[in-house]
Write a protein that binds this DNA or RNA. Structure first.
Length: 113
DNA sequence: ACGTTGACGGATT
DNA sequence: TAATCCGCCAACG
């Protein structure tokens, strides 16, 4: 897949996040990979900031299903997800059940650490 | 123009 | 298992 640079990255990332179905979650790394930027997890954060509010930001969590958003926002994210039916195990999402894997990424699938 | 930051992740030690 | 290091790259001061 051709590596696009600049702003196109945000467009790709946002489009990717928008595909996460209700009741499912994806990690920053997975989103970056699916968008065509393997390893660029940090840029996903910027993409979320840029379009914040218009997309299901709450469905993006850290590796292992951990909520990384600090403070009240983290609590809010948890509530939003729970209201969508997402189950938590302690402080993390039950990825076994709610992790969303893009069809095209099947080959790259790897279990949770 | 340059250095730092960021809701990170994975590899290495 | 935990602590540390490094890459990712746009935005910001």
């Amino acid at each position: 897949m051709k590596r696009q640079t600049n702003i196109g990255m945000f467009v790709a990332v946002r489009a990717t996040i928008r595909k996460i179905p209700r009741g499912k979650v994806a990690t920053y790394g997975d989103v970056a990979y699916a968008a065509g930027f393997p390893g660029a997890a940090r840029q996903v954060v910027w993409a979320l900031h840029g379009s914040g509010g218009l997309l299901p930001w709450q469905r993006v969590v850290g590796a292992g299903g951990k909520i990384l958003l600090p403070g009240v926002q983290g609590a809010e994210q948890r509530l939003l997800l729970q209201s969508e039916g997402v189950v938590f195990i302690g402080l993390r999402v039950d990825m076994k059940q709610h992790r969303y894997t893009w069809p095209m990424l099947r080959k790259k699938f790897r279990g949770i650490k």
